[in-house]
Computed example of a mutant assay.
Amino acid sequence: MLEIGAARSDAERTLEAAIVQVEAWKPCCLSYQPVSGGISNTNFLVRVDGDPVGYFVKIPGRGTEMFIDRSAARAASKQAEAMDVGPRTFDFLDHLDIEISEFLDDRRASTHRDFLDPAFRATVVSMYRRLHEAPPLPLTKTVFDMIEEHYEQVKQLGGYWPEDHAWLYRQYKQARAALEASGLDLVPCFNDPMPGNFLVGDDKSIKLIDFEYASNNERLYDLAIWSSEHFFSEDVEQEIIEEYFGRYDKRWHARFIVHKALADIKWSAWALVQNRMSTLDFDFYKYGIWKHMRARSIIYDPRWPSFLKAL
């Protein structure tokens, strides 16, 4: 753990300058250490002398204000806390757009291996159902809004486009038209199911962290991006749909698969923005190209036209 005054990087200096402003912590000795994980921000564990609670402090990454509404993220975190789905949150540094929540020492970040267990997946499905039944969030931001936002940002930043960008954009517009014609089912969505955002207890219970991308969005998008992030087979997707809705329907599965392609287009465009803006040590270019490739693999599937017709 580092003491105040021992900062070695810009992120650590930013952290120190912020946490000394917390009124409740001013009489205390503070120490901190970096926490690995995440590809948007720089994260720290802060210890307050005499306080048994560990604090998770998130320093926003450069440029993240372009696509993250911090006030909306706070509201989503508060709602998750009230539902006992997320950790306790603290408003100590909200005015600096720095997020602070309880550091859950008794839990570990999940891995892809956890999601091989059908019982574990069923627990996650149940949690998603609870999230989706909650009151609407203050921010409505569909996957269409996200894609358009990132496309405009890449243009403004002079970012890289893949050679078949125009073709990919046409496929997205066609899928969007089909989905909007069928009507959108907007509910509170998590939108960011990276394994590290699921914290697992010894009893296999789960808490979610990181609600920066949460918004009212299409219900099946939330399930589809979870499947995409964890490389589920179509057989597993069928189980997820049946577990979530109580029965399986091929039309829901078609919608699910279309949303998987849109999720990859969204995150590939996001990566192209990050490639121009972020100072984190992460290969956003490679990440974006991989996401583009996976979106193509779904759209190239001979069944793609039938998926769109089924919507």
Score class of each variant (00 low, 15 high):
residue 243 E to T: 13
residue 224 A to G: 11
residue 201 G to F: 04
residue 230 H to A: 07
residue 223 L to F: 11
residue 219 R to Q: 05
residue 273 V to P: 00
residue 246 G to W: 13
residue 219 R to I: 01
residue 196 G to P: 10
residue 250 K to P: 02
residue 246 G to V: 09
residue 229 E to K: 01
residue 187 V to M: 10
residue 229 E to D: 13
residue 215 S to K: 05
residue 251 R to M: 07
residue 181 A to P: 03
residue 198 F to K: 10
residue 199 L to I: 02
residue 240 I to V: 15
residue 198 F to E: 04
residue 233 S to F: 12
residue 201 G to Y: 07
residue 254 A to Y: 14
residue 188 P to W: 05
residue 233 S to M: 10
residue 219 R to N: 00
residue 241 I to S: 13
residue 201 G to A: 15
residue 255 R to Y: 03
residue 271 A to C: 14
residue 213 Y to L: 10
residue 257 I to F: 12
residue 273 V to N: 00
residue 273 V to L: 00
residue 213 Y to F: 15
residue 239 E to M: 11
residue 184 L to F: 08
residue 255 R to M: 02
residue 195 P to Y: 09
residue 219 R to W: 01
residue 214 A to V: 02
residue 184 L to R: 12
residue 266 K to C: 07
residue 244 Y to N: 10
residue 192 D to G: 01
residue 272 L to K: 13
residue 259 H to Y: 15
residue 194 M to G: 10
residue 267 W to E: 08
residue 180 E to A: 03
residue 204 K to F: 14
residue 198 F to Q: 06
residue 216 N to M: 13
residue 180 E to H: 04
residue 210 D to I: 01
residue 191 N to K: 05
residue 185 D to F: 06
residue 199 L to T: 04
residue 266 K to N: 07
residue 250 K to C: 03
residue 220 L to K: 14
residue 195 P to G: 08
residue 264 D to E: 12
residue 217 N to P: 06
residue 228 S to Q: 13
residue 220 L to Q: 13
residue 192 D to P: 00
residue 254 A to I: 03
residue 237 E to H: 05
residue 232 F to S: 05
residue 243 E to H: 09
residue 201 G to M: 04
residue 253 H to W: 11
residue 211 F to K: 07
residue 211 F to Q: 05
residue 206 I to P: 11
residue 268 S to A: 14
residue 204 K to S: 15
residue 270 W to S: 06
residue 180 E to G: 02
residue 229 E to Q: 06
residue 265 I to R: 04
residue 207 K to W: 04
residue 181 A to Q: 13
residue 247 R to H: 15
residue 197 N to G: 05
residue 197 N to L: 08
residue 199 L to Q: 10
residue 240 I to Q: 11
residue 227 S to A: 15
residue 265 I to G: 03
residue 202 D to E: 14
residue 205 S to G: 13
residue 263 A to R: 03
residue 220 L to C: 07
residue 229 E to C: 09
residue 208 L to W: 11
residue 186 L to G: 00
residue 271 A to W: 03
residue 214 A to F: 09
residue 197 N to K: 09
residue 266 K to G: 02
residue 200 V to G: 01
residue 242 E to C: 10
residue 271 A to I: 00
residue 231 F to P: 04
residue 253 H to L: 09
residue 182 S to D: 13
residue 245 F to K: 08
residue 261 A to V: 04
residue 229 E to P: 03
residue 253 H to N: 07
residue 219 R to G: 00
residue 202 D to G: 08
residue 248 Y to T: 01
residue 270 W to Q: 04
residue 190 F to I: 07
residue 182 S to P: 02
residue 209 I to W: 03
residue 252 W to H: 14
residue 232 F to V: 07
residue 183 G to N: 04
residue 237 E to F: 06
residue 236 V to G: 11
residue 186 L to A: 00
residue 228 S to M: 12
residue 274 Q to G: 00
residue 268 S to H: 01
residue 251 R to T: 13
residue 210 D to T: 01
residue 269 A to G: 06
residue 222 D to Y: 02
residue 215 S to L: 06
residue 236 V to D: 12
residue 273 V to T: 01
residue 244 Y to M: 09
residue 191 N to H: 09
residue 205 S to R: 08
residue 200 V to F: 02
residue 225 I to T: 15
residue 250 K to T: 04
residue 253 H to Y: 11
residue 191 N to M: 08
residue 250 K to W: 07
residue 220 L to Y: 14
residue 235 D to Q: 14
residue 196 G to W: 07
residue 249 D to K: 14
residue 208 L to N: 00
residue 183 G to I: 01
residue 232 F to G: 02
residue 187 V to Q: 11
